[in-house]
Simulated scan of single mutants.
Amino acid sequence: MDSSAIKVGADSTLTATLAEGIKDSLPIVLSYVPVAFAFGMNATKLGFTPLESVFFSCIIYAGASQFVITTLLAAGSALWVAALTVMAMDVRHVLYGPSLRSRILHPLKNPKTALWAFGLTDEVFAAATAKLVRDNRRWSENWMLGIAFCSWLSWVAGTVLGAFSGYGLLEGYPTVESALGFMLPALFMSFLLASFQRRQSLSVTAALLGALAGVTLFSIPAAILAGIVAGCLTALVQAFYQGAPDES
């Protein structure tokens, strides 16, 4: 057999495929659908039309921030106030791209990168980081497209189901309603714990203390921003004195 053919066959097993991305997205999909369902119901309950609710999920696609912005707008807040609040809550996403890029050994293709970058939510970022930490060689943009697109599609589909089914279905089941709201942070926490390492404990502690100070002294958006800044600054200082962490 031709040696080049053997080499191609061996290399093909090193990169994760689109199908693997779809398969790996299932834990995210299973948690996104009920939370998005709750968002669709909540948005229509606040006075938004089903199409407006679905529009939020298609374009903003920001999880908990969608609950915040719909609540603020329904309460009569100015659009710029709602926008700034959501930006403060989601400013962490600015760091996701550079963080992943520093770990990725493969060359990136702009069209594909733009597509999966849109779907780079907390959970997708955590899943990608965990895969890069475990085995950088098997990460691929096709895998990222699979996990990002399926996650986005499940969020939109859940919103459609919730928005068009009407509101009030869970009013008699407060425990179920609370559980739906907890699934999203629980999923992200599971990914965070999967990729957590001992050397990150100082940064995590600093982020938690910063967030606690922010929510005590100011507000939830300020707490999110304070936690991000505290964690990032601690990581930078730690990297400066101890050297960059081993990416292997």
Results as ranks from 00 to 15, higher is better:
178 S>M: 09
102 S>Y: 07
222 A>C: 07
125 F>P: 00
53 S>F: 08
56 F>Y: 13
63 G>Q: 01
153 L>A: 15
173 Y>K: 13
99 S>H: 01
70 T>N: 09
164 F>M: 05
12 S>D: 15
1 M>Q: 11
10 A>R: 14
238 Q>T: 11
107 P>V: 11
101 R>Y: 10
19 A>V: 14
244 A>C: 06
207 A>C: 08
117 A>G: 13
103 R>P: 04
192 L>G: 03
110 N>I: 15
193 L>S: 01
180 L>W: 04
169 L>D: 09
122 D>Q: 06
177 E>I: 10
228 I>T: 13
130 A>I: 03
79 L>T: 14
248 S>I: 10
218 F>W: 09
148 A>F: 07
166 G>E: 10
165 S>W: 10
8 V>P: 07
243 G>K: 08
208 L>W: 03
234 T>D: 06
229 V>N: 02
62 A>W: 08
98 P>Y: 13
104 I>R: 06
110 N>Q: 15
145 L>R: 05
5 A>Q: 14
46 L>P: 08
246 D>V: 06
11 D>K: 14
6 I>V: 12
90 D>L: 09
157 A>D: 07
173 Y>I: 14
203 S>V: 06
203 S>I: 04
101 R>C: 15
239 A>D: 15
204 V>C: 10
29 V>H: 02
136 N>G: 14
52 E>N: 11
131 K>G: 07
221 P>R: 00
75 A>I: 03
133 V>C: 02
70 T>S: 13
144 M>Y: 03
225 L>H: 01
179 A>N: 05
57 S>N: 10
28 I>K: 03
161 L>D: 03
244 A>P: 01
221 P>L: 00
116 W>R: 05
136 N>K: 11
212 L>G: 03
90 D>M: 09
186 A>I: 02
54 V>A: 06
177 E>K: 12
115 L>M: 11
134 R>Y: 10
201 S>H: 09
49 T>G: 12
112 K>I: 14
88 A>W: 12
133 V>F: 10
248 S>L: 14
166 G>Q: 11
81 V>S: 12
186 A>L: 06
39 F>I: 08
34 P>L: 02
214 G>V: 00
140 S>F: 00
222 A>E: 03
220 I>K: 00
14 L>C: 11
231 G>H: 03
172 G>R: 08
153 L>E: 04
55 F>G: 07
4 S>A: 11
97 G>D: 12
39 F>Q: 01
210 G>L: 02
193 L>E: 01
71 T>S: 15
192 L>E: 03
172 G>W: 01
